[in-house]
């Protein structure tokens, strides 16, 4: 029984980690190539979820909603990159934080103005609802399995793009030396916009996938943004591979911690205080993980040394 539970929780952790990767990938790319701290990333996640909910409500198609989430978030990302963020690359990190924080407020209140203050409805499609019997009697949600699959596909696509395509070469070159690739004739400002839009699209996709099993509401992006920052700090800022490993680590630590720590404390104290202390400690676990990683590797697991 408890082995089944453990496998189920591991799947949950994996699913959480894969979704975190979709968020963290854009964040780490933007930081790696442009050197920008982008707090607006959580709002793009929200934009994706709202775009998906709006399209799903009109068309009833979940696949169209997913397309809309990527397109919507990428479009909004492109607009804010060209209008605001472009001016911030050469400036101090503090200016970037201030300006992108202002963008969070603008996007949040803008979304409320368009869609109202009440959460929107976005549900899993009927063909992905329900559960699947896995071997050894493990019952698991089909939708969550699909999320793992979709996230891994997106990750594979991203790795392929960066390792094998011309754009990928330019992105990697941009991470190493921005001036040099500019001098070699690459249109650096178009590359920046493209990288930003790719990151925004991935965040939007994550927003739509998660929105279907959580609530689509204003302010949904900020808690995820914090986790995404933890992920890229653990993985090493600027590294896609680091973001992937960091995301899976954070997902597993958080999920298994929430499950195991209260049980661990219950071994030597009464049930009520064990749940209280165990769950308090569980919500700290990923930050403890981050502190531990930074202690051993100050630049993160895959950070450039």
């Amino acid at each position: 029984m408890s082995v089944i539970l453990l496998v189920e929780q591991t799947l949950n952790g994996l699913q959480f980690g894969v979704m975190l990767f979709l968020m963290a990938a854009g964040l780490t790319l933007v930081f790696g190539v442009m050197g920008l701290i982008n707090l607006t990333h959580g709002s793009l996640y929200m934009v994706g979820a709202f775009a998906a909910a709006a399209v799903a409500a009109r068309t009833g198609s979940f696949l169209l909603a997913l397309v809309a989430s990527i397109a919507g978030a990428a479009a909004v990302g492109t607009i804010i990159e060209m209008a605001v963020i472009r001016r911030l690359y050469s400036r101090d990190h503090l200016d970037q934080v201030l300006a992108t924080f202002a963008l969070i407020l603008i996007l949040s209140e803008g979304t409320r103005w368009l869609f109202g203050s009440y959460p929107l409805f976005l549900d899993t499609p009927p063909w992905l609802s329900g559960t699947l019997m896995l071997p050894f009697g493990i019952e698991y949600s089909i939708y969550r399995l699909s999320m793992i699959g979709a996230g891994l596909c997106a990750a594979a696509g991203l790795f392929w793009m960066i390792a094998r395509t011309r754009i990928g070469i330019q992105i990697r070159a941009g991470e190493n030396d921005r001036e040099m690739i500019g001098a070699l004739g690459v249109n650096i400002s178009r590359l920046n916009t493209l990288v930003f839009a790719i990151g925004a699209g991935l965040a939007g996709l994550a927003g739509a996938l998660i929105g279907a099993i959580q609530s689509v509401q204003v302010g949904m992006g900020e808690p995820v943004l914090i986790l995404a920052f933890v992920v890229i700090v653990i993985g090493g800022i600027g590294s896609i591979r680091g973001a992937f490993v960091g995301a899976i680590l954070v997902g597993l630590t958080d999920t298994l911690g929430r499950f195991a720590l209260p049980h661990l404390f219950a071994l030597f104290m009464d049930a009520s205080s064990a749940t209280s202390i165990g769950s308090s400690l569980a919500s700290m676990s990923i930050y403890l993980l981050m502190a531990g990683v930074l202690l051993l590797r100050p630049r993160g697991l895959f950070g450039a040394t």
């Binding site: 949950n12 808690p223 499950f259 769950s279």
Partner: peptide, 15 residues
Amino acid sequence: LYTKLGQTDYAAEIA
């Protein structure tokens, strides 16, 4: 069970 305030994923609790 006590969950984190603002938590949005309950897979671990539901299991």
